[in-house]
Design a protein around this nucleic acid. Structure first.
Lengths: 163, 163
DNA sequence: AGTTGACATGATATGTTATAACAATATATC
DNA sequence: GATATATTGTTATAACATATCATGTCAACT
């Protein structure tokens, strides 16, 4: 067993079961603090996202939930996913119409998403300077930014070497 | 008649028929240069986007194409829209699953999109500094960016005043 | 313990967005 | 005008998403 280096991303090798359990433990606490509950469907949905370590469509999530004995109708997946997104435990990747587990829960962040077209994995990159630049551009046109989406499609280090 | 000020955006008043005809004229030339053809459906699709001056869903475009005697099946709209996007004459707004005419065709650009939630109009903002910041963040993780999406949701100047 | 109210889940139905696959037609080139 | 290529049309279906109403669960209060 080894610790993940700081700044670890899904693109780098890491102890997967450990990052999963750490995140789940955090989730329990974080959710409780807001007065919400991490119910079985919600917890399992988060696990599914964590196990995948890539963006999953709502229907992929739904299939797995159904296999585990939860409902098999779309709202089941969408409600759980929306909950996780609201709680900051998952992100929606607009470009893919899909969802990923948040890799830095608890830390205030509005990341840029790096989507590898080789292995389909998604990493979160620190995006403060990106947001700042966007704010500046928007302000120059008199536009007030409320929410923003920053997503990049390309190749991760591993897929770059072995295409 | 008056000229649009440099940096005009859909958020500011401007001579609409003029910006439409200018863009169409440019499109004819630009497309010819690449060896492609601006066929009737494609041309009409671009006109539809230009007339709307906001993001239109593929099926909205399709309805209008059908009214004009073109096919009424989804691929008709999607093909024309994809063509225009490939040619740099239109943009896809990922957040809205919708399309807009490009307001700065010909000029090399990878704009940030400012989406007003008041009036639904979409403006393109210069995004070079934004892309640079994104490149920097990605490179730090060994990720190579090929395409990127930068979209902001918020309020335009007009809607900010009169909500 | 029983009532209430808020939250959560399940089920039905439908709406919206997007593409694969193939046939028919137009256009360019030789 | 024969051939190749690009474009359009059609059928069918896949993939993504939400509205609505019924049912269940849990905690707080009386």
């Amino acid at each position: 067993m080894r610790d993940d280096p700081p700044g670890a991303t899904p693109f780098q090798p890491h102890d997967h079961s450990r990052c999963t359990s750490t995140t789940l433990a955090h989730a329990e606490r974080a959710v409780a603090e807001t007065g919400a509950r991490l119910t079985p469907v919600r917890r399992r949905t988060l696990e599914i996202l964590l196990e995948a370590h890539r963006a999953l469509g709502a229907y992929e999530v739904l299939d797995r939930l159904a296999q585990d004995g939860f409902g098999n109708k779309p709202p089941v997946a969408y409600r759980a996913l929306d909950f996780l997104v609201d709680q900051g435990l998952a992100h929606r990747i607009s470009r893919l119409n899909a969802f990923t587990a948040c890799m830095h829960p608890g830390v205030a962040h509005a990341p840029a998403f790096l989507i590898c077209r080789g292995c389909n994995r998604v990493a979160e990159a620190p995006a403060d300077p990106v947001r700042t630049a966007l704010e500046t551009a928007a302000t120059a046109l008199g536009f007030t930014v409320e929410r923003s989406t920053v997503e990049a499609l390309g190749l991760c280090p591993a897929c770059h070497e072995a295409p």
